[in-house]
Write a protein that binds this DNA or RNA. Structure first.
Lengths: 315, 315
DNA sequence: GCTTCAGTTAAGGTATACTTATGTGAAGAT
DNA sequence: ATCTTCACATAAGTATACCTTAACTGAAGC
């Protein structure tokens, strides 16, 4: 069985050569002489039984065999490099890479992080605001904060109490719209970032909690929660604000939540990291800070009557 | 920058040890002595700066660092192995691996392949009936035959003329249902495997070609084209048969297509392989045979009035 | 308490991989 | 034309990484 791997140094030499399309540059990358690289490629070709490169006089080009091997070789070594880097990163207790959705980043994390940074000056914090699902090893991320239902198989999970939503608006608008009924006339803001919730947590659901059967048909739509909140702050209308997204602006007085009925979604934020890494100093510190910040504003929930979404009467 | 890869032999030793969770078995796999393997692991741990395994007395277990590295290492080496195997396979001109959907495999390829096997006894043919999208390198497949629209970026493509569909039924049923109108009373068979076509090629479309506005509401549904054809052969009803799927049974007299109106879909079969590989002897031979077989039955199309699907009047 | 098992350690040999130095053929410059 | 340069090939010598043999350790199991 010659299906086993050829000498790995030779394969790596080939990978570098194929990426640079030049033996000389590949040799430079690997810190060896061009002669050594030439030898490696030759030995690999002997293992294979056919050439991988066509030697033109001032350049090289890949043969069919080379074209077949090159992408896989590149991907393989990239995977190995990523895994190795991730492993090395475990010893690095001074950097912490966190990813969260753009909404939470803008409206919750960013306004609070200065405190974390002050409490832990030794930690070099990096941020990645994306909704993309993360592979902790491949993407070199330590912590992810995600909104949704879970479950999160194979991960360390620290759930936060479920989110609830309630109408929020600028203080000026609040003077005009004082009753649930009056909201039917108000300019409404739609946050499409929670459209994926099932059962839906939307304006018709909230109106039903008030005994009102009303399906608003127009208004401003935003794909990101923070933009919807920003629009409400700007006085553009009334938004169904998620607790985590609106809390900062509520505290600052830029938003008010005049109606004391909120809908509890079944979804919540989760603090996620690779299992075992929750004890690394910077991750533990971030987790503790995160929990403490959440707890700081927990009392707000007491002001509201929170109705689980499944208890809302159907239309 | 110590983010560069560590010695690859050491990494491979680690990979084997992590997969087997045993240095001894890993050494066996790599055809080295346990001592050598122990050394490799130790050197890797020195490179990393921390242990990868915890040595218990009769076993080893992965440390956090080991758990982080192991999956990536395994994936990386798997990728490299697959790429290397795919490259070696290029020299092998005696095996040919073909993948096609289950319908085409059952109703078109299988009944014809004995001829190809007889004409090319030197070729060892392997079959993989699946609809899954294939990666020619990773999945070790030489040729894929796929139904749909394309395009197929980065692949060698040999398109076959578009498919058309026409009602097919057993000879017994054909005595009873002699006019398009009578089909409205017939048990109809639905082939869901072409539901993805847009514009749709379905019973209502065919009825419209006959000037009939009729949307059948019940009948037997099959997710695979070959099952729909089999049901028609068995006399269970009338199917909208795709040319490629029905042709064998039409020739054998097990099915008849009494109405001479067919709908041409915009989709067609494509013969796909990795660019450059179309000249490999066994792939070229299979391609030539494939084209020749298609041509053999091309005259059948002359019997039908073939209406492009976009020319059918809307409902 | 002896045996076995799984991994470690040390010493020494061998094959692998690298370097230096020289060679080759074609493109581009003068 | 011829000269230079460039990119890779080849040869010979060397270093080092890798492997083997052989003896060691410490715990589990009969």
């Amino acid at each position: 069985m010659t299906d086993r791997l050829p000498p790995l140094t030779a394969l790596r030499a080939f990978d570098a050569a194929a990426r640079h399309m030049s033996f000389a540059k590949a040799a430079e990358e690997l810190n060896v002489t061009p002669a050594a690289l030439s030898f490696q490629i030759k030995s690999l070709e002997e293992h294979l039984g056919q050439p991988l490169f066509r030697r033109l006089n001032r350049a090289v080009e890949l043969t069919e065999a080379g074209k077949t091997l090159a992408p896989g070789a590149a991907e393989g070594f990239e995977t190995l490099t990523a895994a190795w880097r991730a492993t090395r990163r475990l010893q690095d207790n001074t950097t912490l890479t966190v990813t969260a959705g753009p909404g939470l980043t803008a409206k919750w994390l960013a306004p609070r992080l200065y405190e974390f940074a002050r409490a832990h000056p030794e930690i070099d914090l990096r941020f990645s605001a994306t909704l993309r699902i993360m592979d902790f090893v491949r993407d070199e991320v330590d912590v992810a904060i995600r909104f949704g239902y879970g479950p999160d198989p194979g991960l360390y999970v620290l759930p936060v109490p479920p989110e609830w939503v309630t109408p929020v608006m600028s203080p000026e608008l609040a003077e005009r719209y004082t009753t649930p009924e009056s909201l039917m006339e108000a300019p409404l803001i739609f946050d499409e970032s929670i459209d994926f919730l099932d059962p839906p947590v939307d304006w018709p659901a909230w109106f039903r909690t008030q005994g009102i059967d009303f399906t608003p048909t127009h208004g401003s739509h935003f794909s990101q929660a923070d933009h919807a909140i920003d629009a409400a702050v700007a006085g553009a209308g009334v938004a169904l604000g998620r607790r985590g997204m609106a809390i900062t602006d509520l505290h600052a007085g830029r938003l008010v939540a005049p109606f004391k009925t909120a809908i509890e979604t079944k979804a919540h934020f989760r603090f996620l990291c690779a299992p075992g890494t929750e004890t690394r100093p910077q991750i533990a510190a971030f987790r503790d800070w995160f929990i403490a910040e959440i707890d700081k504003t927990a009392y707000v929930s007491d002001e509201f009557e929170i109705i689980p979404v499944e208890d809302i009467p159907p239309p």
